[in-house]
Amino acid sequence: MKILVCISKAPDTTTKITFKDNDTHFNKDGVQFIINPYDEWYALVRGLELKEAAGSGSVTVINVGTAENDPVIRKALAIGADDAVRIDSEDKDPFNVAKQIADYAKDKGYDMILTGKETIDYNGSQIGGMIAEFLNLPYISQASKLDVNGNIATVIRDIQGGKEVLEVEGAFVLGAAKGMAEARIPNMRGIMAARTKPLNVVPSTAGEDLTEIKSYSLPPAKAACKYVSADNPGELLDLLKNEAKVL
């Protein structure tokens, strides 16, 4: 089984978000970076489980980014990926990120391309679907379960207030959500092995960016919390109706 897992780098979930250069860039000073949780906990681990169950095959991780992403890519190798590819390009425009992954994957015969359902920094939930359309493959967004039997994959997709059970024939792209696997912690052997596993850097095939982030902003500061006595919840309802106007 030949599996490609797309990983992106994201600021640790506890990061306090600040900006620089007149609010035009994210301030990376002192920020700890991790593998985007959906990519690591669900896409990568499920990919490894499927390879292990099949008893043969490979799991390759791919990232579009600069050399500053290499430590995060090595962590994916420590968790168990066989090798890694980094397309040497800034990942500014999602369309270009997807196009480059599709260009790389198109003639390599992957049985599946796994992505996370979304990144926790850009929150696009779009790169997996774009790769799928470039390659004319099915894309299962928000997938919470994936089983493979020969040429047929059975996938559960979360939908509004429920689930859909889907059957997919042949190669596909998937956006992994919670439920698909349990996170794995890399062990010492994995970390040692990761140092010598191949991390191939390939040149960018990026075209013109279709979008550009012009500026960032933070939500307006909240007014102080208004306290209501625990003995009189009725007062809360009055405030919600007459002051906040949400009832």
Partner: peptide
């Protein structure tokens, strides 16, 4: 929403369109 997250990226590629989700 759940539907849009499946549709938007494919449509962006079909139309060669820049997209802003969310």
């Amino acid at each position: 929403d759940h539907s849009g997250k499946g549709i938007l990226p494919r449509l962006a590629v079909r139309l060669n369109a820049g997209s802003v989700p969310g």
